[in-house]
């Protein structure tokens, strides 16, 4: 295979192979490389195995961390929803007239779902309405705020949208109602009777005698999550306030084994202090 040369000048096969990549002066060696393919395959397989193992471990770790983070995010979101919802529902209540009833894991109340201002009376009564949903005669009642008369309730007997019949501000729609007894410029709140429950680890809402629908994920620890009424003289110029004490406990976050507890006080603004029970209390 090699041209005839002396033994001294003839390169060894090893040198030739080494020179194939390094010798810039001679032609590269392109001959066969018998006997090394298997080793390279082994090396490649080994490398692939390592990469696969590392990738799998990374994937497992990332998945686990993602699940933990997702669970924690769910707990935090449920906790926030719990607090905001209770604050919104309770903050504008009058505990007595609105029938606020508390136990450690339940509170029942008038749940306000809309507000209207009567804009026309006569042959028909119309009001400008804004709310969480459309009024529903099968669910709703009316609370007429104090004005010409003392505050009182009326049944909501139904109505139909009547666009353009009153000048409605942005976000409001004109509703023609069949309920008698409303006066011009009456402020009317639409409400339904409802109750919130901490059951099966979730905050649930029940309208009237209906089923309890979850409004949060089931992340609460029922034995540790509690509601309580607190009475305090917090005066800020307009009114004294009472408050609803929340103790929201969510499932433990590993590696902790104890529930994560979040105490919170939600003001009840429409309350004079003291209430009927003149001492601090928790029910």
């Amino acid at each position: 295979m090699f041209p005839e040369t002396s033994a001294r000048s003839r390169p060894s096969a090893r040198r030739v192979r080494e020179g194939a990549g390094l010798n810039r002066h001679g032609p590269p060696y392109t001959g066969p490389r018998d006997g090394h393919t298997f080793i390279e395959v082994i090396v490649v397989l080994l490398a692939l195995s390592i990469i696969t193992a590392v990738s799998a471990a990374s994937l497992t770790t990332v998945t686990r961390l993602g699940r933990i983070a997702g669970d924690e995010a769910e707990r935090l979101a449920a906790r926030r929803t719990f607090a905001l919802l209770v604050a919104w529902e309770v903050g504008s209540l009058m505990p007595g007239p609105d029938g606020l009833q508390l136990s450690a894991d339940t509170f029942a109340l008038r749940a306000f779902r809309g507000r209207g201002v009567v804009c026309a009376v006569g042959s028909t009564t119309r009001l400008n309405y804004r709310g969480l949903r459309a009024p529903d005669a099968t669910k709703d009642s009316l609370l007429v705020l104090e004005g010409r008369t003392a505050e009182h309730t009326l049944p909501y007997t139904g109505g139909a949208w009547s666009p353009g019949s009153c000048v409605a501000p942005a976000g409001e729609q004109t509703l023609e109602v069949t309920t008698p007894g409303l006066d011009l410029h009456d402020i009317v709140l639409f409400f339904e009777r409802g109750s919130y429950h901490i059951a099966n680890g979730a905050l649930r809402y029940r309208r009237g005698p209906g089923g309890r629908q979850p409004v949060t994920a089931d992340v609460f620890v029922p034995d540790s999550t509690r509601l309580g009424l607190s009475i305090a003289s917090k005066t800020w110029g307009i009114a004294d306030t009472a408050g609803l004490d929340l103790r929201i406990a969510t499932e433990p976050v590993p590696p902790s084994s104890a529930p994560s507890v979040w105490p919170l006080r939600v003001p009840i603004r429409n309350t004079r202090v003291p209430l009927d029970s003149a001492t601090d209390s928790a029910t």
Partner: peptide, 13 residues
């Protein structure tokens, strides 16, 4: 302005 009745803070929608 003053509070004309106990119910002065209304739910907002």
């Amino acid at each position: 302005l003053y509070r004309v009745s106990d119910r002065w803070w209304l739910p907002s929608f």
